[in-house]
């Protein structure tokens, strides 16, 4: 799995993320139930939840909002169609708004 961000690099404000979920053969995996949440590394910042859309060829669009510049940990938690659990974290640095 990998995460693509738009804009790149991530900046404070609304963002479109794409979660790319591939099987070992490199084919897209659809129909996973995914949740995306973003936490800053500093305590005391409210969690930001992403809204995950329908997947097409393993590409899951996520509507998200980076609420502050700094270091973020993006957690993707979910279940594949065959019942296996999926849990991955990604470290991202978010730049201040232009």
């Amino acid at each position: 799995m990998r995460v693509l961000t738009s804009p790149t690099p991530p900046r404070v404000g609304p963002a479109e993320l794409t979660l790319e979920l591939l099987d070992p053969a490199g084919l897209g995996v659809d129909h996973a139930l995914l949740q995306v949440r973003g936490n800053m590394t500093h305590p005391g910042m409210a969690l930001v939840a992403g809204i995950v859309g329908e997947a097409v060829k393993g590409q899951y669009p996520v509507t998200f909002e980076w609420s502050m510049a700094g270091d973020w940990i993006l957690t993707v938690d979910g279940q594949l169609e065959d019942g296996r659990r999926l849990l991955r974290t990604f470290e991202l640095r978010v730049e201040p708004a232009p």
């Binding site: 800053m40 590394t41 510049a69 700094g70 270091d71 201040p96 708004a97």
Partner: peptide, 10 residues
């Protein structure tokens, strides 16, 4: 200034 929650990854 915008707060950055500085440097944990860096």
């Amino acid at each position: 200034l915008p707060m950055e929650m500085r440097g944990t990854f860096r």
